[in-house]
Structures are given as C-alpha cells and as structure tokens.
Design a protein around this nucleic acid. Structure first.
Lengths: 368, 368
DNA sequence: CGATTCCATGGAACTGGTTCCACACCTTAG
DNA sequence: CTAAGGTGTGGAACCAGTTCCATGGAATCG
C-alpha cells in the first residue's frame, strides 16, 4: 500500500464491506464532506453557507440547504470550537458550603437566561473546599483544569479569600457574586457584581422611622460580613435620626432561623421593648416571628418586623413579611453580562457593579 | 511558494518575526507538538503518556512529564472529544414552568455530585414550552440542537407528553424524572426514575391509624397526577382499615399554599371534624396550618398534620412538620447512573426505577 | 479587444488531539 | 546464527470543522 494511495482509500473505505451491516444500525452522523458530495459542491461552500459569512449564490445556497435537510446534517459542535477558540460555555461554580440554596438557584436562573439568549451554555459545577486550606491546595473541579472547555467562570456562594486566590492562579476569566465574599483585602483583582446591603437596611429603617417608630432593634449574626453591612445601614439610619441602636446578638451555631429565635428572648427581656425590629435576613425574621408568636407577642400589632432578601417564602408568611427585595435573577444576568464583556475585552479594568435593592412593604409593619 | 513547502513551513512560521511581539503578550497555549519537540520525542509518545494507555519507558515518560510541566501544557478538551465521540457532558434540562424549584435544585445537586465523581460535566439548560403546542413546534434549547456537545439529557420539572415526544424525536439518550410526568400513555419508550407517591401516603396514613386516628382527611389538588397518586395511597390505607375517606378539594388557581388555606375552611365546616389530615405536599400542609392557626385550631392538639416531600422548611415549621421524605439527591444520582448505563448499552431495555420514600415523624402528629 | 476587477467556488492546509502501522532494537528460541 | 516474538517509538493519517488562496468566468473599464 503506497503512502498516498492509502490516504485516498481511507476516505472511501472507512466501512469495509463486512462491517457495513453493523454500521448501518447506528447511522454515522453525516459530515460536511457528505453534504458537499450530496450537493455537488466543495466543502468550503458548505462552511460558508453554515456561517452565512461571505457570498454564496442564491442557487448554490438553496442546493446546500436542501442537502443538509435531506441528510439530517448537524455540524459537530466540538470540531467547530477548536478553531473558534471559544467554547461559548461558561461555568457556574458554587461552593459546596451552600448546596444549591434557593438564593443561588435564582442567580443561576438569571445566568442561564441571559446566557441562552446569547447562544451561550452554562455548566454547573460544585467546588468542595474549606476556608482554611491554603489556596494552592484547593482541588478545583475538572472543568477548570481542562483547557478549552469553558471560556470563563461565574463564582457564587460563600467565597473565602483562599478560593479567590486559587481561581486567580489559573488565569481564567471570572466574575464573582460579591455579597457573600468573606474578608476582602481591599485590592480588586477581579470583576464583581453585588447589591447594596447597607443601603437596603438604611431604607427599611428610615421607613420605620417615618412610620413613627423610635425604639427599633436590629437582629442579625454580624459574623457574616453581609449581615454586618446590613447592621451598618441600620445604624446609619438611626444615627441620622439621633436614635439609639438596639441590637440582640446571641450566640448561635444552628443557622439563621435559630439565631432569630434566640434573639427574641433577648428582645423581650429588655425593659424598653422595641416597637419594631429589622432582621439580618428573612430566615432570621422568620425565627424571630416564630418565637414571638410562641410568647404571645403579636406581629405587627406589638412588634413590627422587617426581613432581608425577599425569599419566596416571605410572601407566604402570616402576615406576609415586609422585606428588602434583592433581584436575584438580575444579579445572575449582570454576572453573565460582565463575564462576556471581560471575554471580549481582556485588558479592560476590573469593575464592581452594585445593583439597587427595593424595600417591599407587606403586612408585618405597623404605622404608629 | 511550493505546495509541500508551504505545509512544512507553516508549522514553524506561524509567527512571522514582525508579529512576534504581539503574540508574546498572549502566549499561545502549547500543543502536543510543542511538548514533543521540547522532550525530543514523537507526538504519539506524548499521547501515550497522557492516556497512560500502552507502554512507555520509564525515562521517556519522565522526560515527557517534565516537558509538560515546563511548558504548562494542558490538553485541549475539545480536540480530544472529537475523536472520543463522547463529550462526557450531560444536560440537566428543566422546563421553565418550574423555575429552579428547591426540589429540582436538589435533584440537580445529586446529578452533579454523581456526575463529577465520574469525571462528567453537567450543563444546565431551561426549556421554554407550553403543554399545548404540538411536539414538533417545541423549540429545543441550542444544546440539544448541536451535535456532539452533550451525550445525553436528564429531564426534570413538570413534563407534558408533547415534550417527551419532542425529545424522543431527536434520538438523544435521556432519562426522565417520572413523578412530574403528566399524562403518560402507558407505553414506555424511555428511561425513568421516580419515587413511590402512593406508598408514601399509604405508610403515613397507616401510621395515623396506628396512633388511634379514625377520622382522617386528605387535602390535595388531585389535578396533578402525583397528588392523585398520593390520594390513592391514602384511600388504600383507609380501605384496609374500613375507614371512610374524607377529602377537601376546593378550586384554587393560586398554588398549593392557597389550596391548603382554602381547604381548611371546608375541613372546619364539617359536622364531624377530622382529627388528622394528610396533605398532598408540604406546601399544602403549610397553607392548611396557617389557616387552622388563624381559626384558633391547634396543631397537633386538635388536628394532626402530615405533609409530603420533606422540604427544607418542613423542619422549621412550628411545630416541625411530620412528612414523607423524598431523597432528592438520590433521585438525581440515580438519573445520572441510568443515563450512563444507557450510553454504554444503547440497546438495553428501558426501565423505570422506583426509589422508596421514608415517613418522618415530627411534631405535628398526636397520639390519641 | 485586452486588461482589470469582482464574485463564487473548490479544495489544500490547518486546528489539536488519537490511532495505528511500520520499524528499530533487544531478547529468546530453534 | 538466523528466526520469531516483544517492546518502545515516530509519525502519517485521521476526526470534522474553518480558513485562505488559487482559479475561472462574468462584468466592467480604458
């Protein structure tokens, strides 16, 4: 068998006669060359039709499209991606610390929605790590280790600095959801999207003051930076009106609901009981609500209550919970948008986009 | 420029001298051929080392690995996939009717977990469709239209028959989460994973009977097939003990919580008020609970209550809701497992795997 | 009427991996 | 000492696309 001969033969003798039967049961996906042969044109023409790039005559285009339809041809996505050097797939990366919390699920929803409108795909991956391990020891999921599979990463969930440094080390474009970043070091080496925690509670607290409340408490686990920021907003509003902040911060290791429950006791045991409470988030507000109800304290008649996040469940509470709405889908969309900008302009300066929150008045706030 | 000459040159003259500067700012990812040259071996040897397939001498392997390390080489995932004819990416497809409901989010979690343990990737996609449109008019997301991007599909969310037929039409291996399939036509042309709705309520109702309850109601919107199956399980348990089923089925278009609230009125207006109620799901149980509380009826002192699904929130209710636990992650894992089996054995007969449920006793059930 | 420009088209060479065959070299057996 | 078998290695051909250059014919121009 001569060198050149074998090359020519291979093209046609891919299926040796005896193997034909087996191959016919699983019909091989037709390729651009099959289409070219069927339409009686060259392979380049097929490519041009597919990419509607340069000129192809009306009749030729019609013949090619007809052949494509007849053969049921669908271009191979992988092959195309090699040349394009873009996979148009982004990775939504969530730390295992958050499972797929409804809040982040909604962000994912936003990412997917915006991505798919621009013909991009979203790969979902979970990262297992602990805040303590040194960055270089964090085991990134295989998606990030492979080369060429994804174009960039959207990082959600609770993010510790070691993770940020690890992601930076692989030189993969990424955007982080910034509100759950724990312990930033000031300098910004990456793109971020977030919302304004402190402004949210600032508006909420101001609203309570407008409604005539003077004794307003804050309940939230400020060991989380985002709760701390919400506390700051509350304090600012109190300061503006020369009111004295009242806060309850029990020790709790059983999550936000438990924290809310425990802090109810502290609130109730005060000499001067507040007429309203701003909670660090909806879960804390819920815990507080449960505990107040148990103690026969009526919401909002005796104590007004405001949450934060506007989870699905907030509106289902009885009475429905007043809260600070965060547009979760919009966060996802904005993350995706920023990532695409970064991909198209790699040298662009890093930015931090802050989305507004919205105070939603429902049944748990009383006008005094 | 001669034909053959140009081919040889191209390999080396990719960067013409004057373009060198620009190219150095964005260093081209090194390829298998760069590694081969650096290690002084052939390209085949690099491939052999990467796939640890056949024999490579100890020294050669060391030299190659060293070159790989030095050049920071990472194989291009896309190129590899063309030849493998497997992308090792599966698509988790959710209908837009369900957003990313926590229930399905947990299934996704299970899919991801099992997939990643087997070095597979999960692509998240949302499908926009209405139950009414004919199958051929359903617009599948681009992932499913492309060829070679994904190996198979896991279908979750509420699934109407037109969607099933549409997916079947593209001849892509898929596994469906069967509990939310609406209107099956008996014949099974695909793989399914689900859990046993009717057995869940059967166990729960039997438990209530054991606890001495005789007047037991069922509350649930049976227009959903899965709720209907739960109703069937309840009825079977009642029949076994020769008890008369009591049910409340108000009209409600505002979701399960509202349905639960509305049915409370019906329950309470009965001459013989039931001492226990089995709800179609946790949301309905919650709605019922809210409404009962408003009417001053104590749970469980006056009425015992059982939900279904074991959502995260069930345990946070006050008292914590007794419910039928569904292992959502396990559903996801099993879907993924079945899909991989299907991919490896395309001719295998279709199967329907039913996972068990588990009755969880919490605070809302009283022993009479 | 010959030269120039333009458009449509074919196909070689390319992307970055894998596969497989040929071959060199070294044992081991006959 | 030759034949046979085994191991390690190089590289052409391959996958299924894209890119780009050469070509041929029609249209335009001087």
């Amino acid at each position: 068998m001569r060198g050149r001969g074998s090359s020519k033969d291979r093209g046609k003798v891919i299926k040796p006669p005896e193997a034909n039967v087996r191959l016919e049961t699983v019909p091989r996906q037709s390729t651009i060359r099959d289409v070219a042969r069927a339409a009686g044109v060259g392979i380049g023409t097929i490519s041009r039709v597919l990419n509607s790039s340069s000129q192809v005559s009306r009749e030729t285009r019609a013949r090619v499209l007809e052949a494509i339809r007849r053969l049921g041809f669908r271009p191979n996505a992988q092959a195309r991606r090699i040349l394009r050097r873009r996979s148009e797939i982004v990775c939504f990366l969530l730390s295992n610390r958050d499972f797929l919390h409804p809040f982040h699920a909604r962000i994912l929803q936003g990412v997917e929605s915006y991505a798919s409108s621009l013909k991009h795909h979203v790969l979902f991956a979970v990262l297992h790590y602990s805040p303590r391990v040194p960055p270089e020891k964090i085991d990134l999921p295989p998606v990030l280790q492979e080369h060429g599979l994804i174009d960039g990463v959207i990082l959600a969930g609770t993010i510790y600095p070691n993770l940020l440094r690890r992601i930076e080390s692989i030189h993969m474009p990424f955007v982080a959801f910034s509100n759950n970043v724990v312990g930033t070091d000031g300098e910004q080496h990456y793109d971020q999207v977030g919302f304004d925690d402190s402004n949210g509670t600032l508006q909420a607290t101001r609203y309570l003051i407008e409604q005539g409340h003077r004794l307003i408490g804050f309940v939230g686990d400020t060991s989380y930076p985002w709760i701390q920021r919400r506390f700051d907003g509350y304090r600012q509003a109190m300061r503006e009106s020369k009111l004295k902040p009242i806060s309850a911060m029990p020790r709790s290791l059983d999550g936000f609901v438990d924290f809310g429950q425990k802090s109810a006791l502290r609130i109730l045991s005060r000499k001067t009981r507040p007429t309203a409470v701003v909670a660090g988030n909806d879960e804390t507000a819920y815990g507080l609500w449960v505990s107040l109800r148990r103690h026969g304290v009526k919401v909002p008649e005796e104590i007004s209550l405001i949450g934060f996040d506007d989870r699905e469940e907030a509106v289902l509470m009885d009475p429905p919970l007043s809260t600070v709405r965060v547009h979760k889908e919009e966060i996802g969309e904005t993350c995706m948008k920023m990532l695409l900008e970064r991909l198209h302009h790699p040298q662009m300066a890093f930015s931090h986009r802050i989305l507004p929150t919205e105070f939603v008045v429902r049944g748990t706030v009383l006008h005094l």
